[in-house]
């Protein structure tokens, strides 16, 4: 009973945090005491939600009890994880910058506590900054069955495609980096995957010819970063083929009658490139 009484501000902060914490840790916390406030800070610092970590920082500066900030866990890149065999079994992924979710590769889906659109909303502001994977938790079949009942299911190739396009940072993933040249086994379904005209062009190029990275940029006019992102995205989705023997970069295509006509139509219809 001799605990110091919390300020209104601290309580207001905790109220906001409680909402977020509940989502993540599934615990209902009381918010009357200094002790509870310390607990809030502890949860907040551990959280994968940036907003929550920020609130925890504020709260800890408001209350007298010293709360040590948890050391930042080591992060790894989402692309390398998606390309690795660590996701052959269902796993929960916990990130620094976006909410946690589950990947169920055998069934080609992700399981989310929120809609896929909300995940996109979280990803967009990151730009090319990696979401920062900090933890990987295997999911038992029982837990998976539980999740199925309440979670929202989204397409895993859809997520992989997006991550490949957004987080490649100009670097080919290690595996495709070792391919002498590239081909594609099918067109990505541009009717459902977000894309730019450039992607349709690169896909068609690699369906009709094989090429190295340089050959691809020379043949399509795509920049190296665009080409790398596209190749990584196709690789993650399982559509990139290893081609032996480096194909020489395609010589600048002569403007045959047909090509000229096609170029004019594509410009007219707003299909840039």
């Amino acid at each position: 009973m001799n605990q110091p009484i919390l300020s209104k501000e601290a309580i207001a902060l905790m109220l906001r945090m409680r909402f977020l914490i509940k989502n993540e840790f599934g615990e209902l916390l009381s918010f009357q005491t200094q002790e509870a406030a310390a607990k809030f800070c502890e949860y907040g610092f551990r959280s994968s939600q940036p907003a929550l970590r920020e609130l925890a920082q504020l709260l800890s500066s408001l209350i007298s009890a010293p709360v040590s900030e948890a050391p930042r866990p080591r992060e790894s890149s989402i692309l390398e994880l998606l390309a690795s065999d660590l996701i052959e079994q269902p796993v929960r992924l916990v990130f620094t910058r976006i909410p946690a979710f589950v990947i169920d590769k055998p069934r080609r889906r992700c399981l989310l506590n929120f809609s896929f659109e909300e995940l996109l909303e979280e990803l967009r502001p990151l730009g090319t900054v990696d979401p920062g994977l900090t933890r990987l938790e295997p999911i038992s079949l029982g837990e998976l069955a539980e999740l199925e009942k309440k979670a929202i299911s989204a397409s895993l190739p859809g997520l992989m495609w997006l991550c490949g396009l957004q987080f490649s940072q100009g670097q080919l993933l290690p595996k495709p980096r070792s391919f002498p040249a590239f081909g594609l086994s099918r067109w990505p379904d541009f009717g459902t995957l977000p894309h730019a005209a450039q992607h349709l062009k690169m896909a068609t190029f690699l369906m009709r010819k094989t090429a190295s990275l340089d050959g691809l940029t020379a043949g399509t006019g795509a920049t190296k970063n665009e080409a790398v992102a596209f190749l990584n995205a196709c690789f993650l989705c399982g559509w990139l083929k290893r081609v032996e023997g480096v194909a020489p970069p395609a010589p600048a295509a002569p403007k045959s009658g047909l090509r000229g006509v096609i170029g004019r139509i594509r410009v007219r219809l707003g299909m840039s490139g």
Binding site: R186, W187, D189, F190, M207, R208, G219, R259, I265, R266
Partner: peptide
């Protein structure tokens, strides 16, 4: 081997996408 795409042809951009992949297939043949 031909491009296969999910479309809703009531949407202009979906029809243009089909046309574009046809034109590109001819361009890179």
């Amino acid at each position: 081997m031909h491009p296969v795409m999910t479309v809703d042809v009531r949407r202009r951009e979906d029809v243009l996408m089909l046309l574009d992949s046809l034109l590109l297939s001819r361009e890179f043949e």
